[in-house]
Design a protein around this nucleic acid. Structure first.
Length: 258
DNA sequence: ATGGCTGAGCTACTCAGA
């Protein structure tokens, strides 16, 4: 089974690229972030035509997350944390694979820039609430996948110029510590587990030819709870959608799970 | 050192992204 996470930067502006991607890669479950639309305007019918059901947590203009899936997703939850700003940033649901229940947690973490503002404080608070809620969840759920746009660069290798990002909300020590704490609860960063020294990115800024120069960041992640690791067959950052016309600034990450 | 792109809402321009 193929599960994919993709920050599409507006599902409506990206609809052609997303449909093309689905035709080509045939994901079983697609986790979308930054859909930038209310539920009512989500292109549910276009995905339905391809055999996908939509599970949407949208809002007007900004943010928004969704699952589109060929298989049934049960127990959809939108209140994994109480968001201080009431932004739509987490959708959870359960899938079943070989009689095993797997909880999927699809997240879009606040960006947090500029630092020394309420935006950064919001990110910190948001992440601390998230960790608290994960800590509760692991007591009752064995198989958990957390995926999405974390807006966190885990290590120096995950950014083209790490010195330039030292005081950035994506790379500050305080933020990276929270990511490590999350891993310490019993999760692995699947990409880094499988690719120990590989330098690849999931995001390239639209500006200043970042894509052409490969000035990127690895900020989209798949975390697996430790006892699910034996089921993870592979992970791939698929750069093709980033090279198309009218691309998202993020590209999909794909896992194969058996 | 920033915001050179991009999108939403809207129709002139601001806000947000990373």
């Amino acid at each position: 089974m193929k599960i994919v996470s993709w920050n599409v930067n507006s599902v409506r502006a990206r609809i052609i690229n997303v449909l093309d991607y689905i035709h080509l890669e045939k994901p079983d479950v697609l986790l979308l972030q930054e859909i930038k639309t209310e539920n009512i305007n989500f292109p549910t019918d276009e995905f339905k035509k391809l055999g996908y059901e939509s599970y949407i947590f949208g809002q007007k203009s900004y943010n928004g997350v969704a699952f589109i899936s060929k298989i049934k997703i049960d127990n959809i939850k939108l209140d994994f944390i109480k968001d201080d700003l009431k932004q739509s940033r987490i959708i959870c649901g359960d899938i079943t694979l070989n009689k095993k229940k797997i909880k999927l947690i699809n997240i879009y973490v606040p960006n947090g820039n500029p630092v020394n503002t309420d935006k950064y404080e919001y990110k910190i608070k948001w992440l601390k609430k998230f960790l608290k809620s994960i800590k509760k969840t692991i007591l009752i759920e064995k198989n958990i996948i957390i995926a999405g746009d974390f807006n966190i660069i885990p290590e120096e290798i995950d950014v083209h110029d790490h010195e330039a990002y030292l005081n950035d909300a994506l790379f500050k020590i305080e933020i990276r510590k929270i990511f490590r704490e999350l891993l310490n609860y019993g999760f692995k960063d699947i990409y880094r587990l499988i690719n120990r020294a590989k330098q690849e990115y999931t995001f390239w800024d639209y500006m200043a030819g970042s894509w052409q120069k490969n000035y990127g960041l690895r900020i989209d992640h798949f975390l697996s709870s430790d006892n699910l690791l034996e089921n993870i067959k592979s992970i791939n950052i698929n750069k093709k959608p980033r090279s198309k016309t009218k691309p998202s600034d993020h590209t999909p990450i794909e896992i194969e799970i058996i």
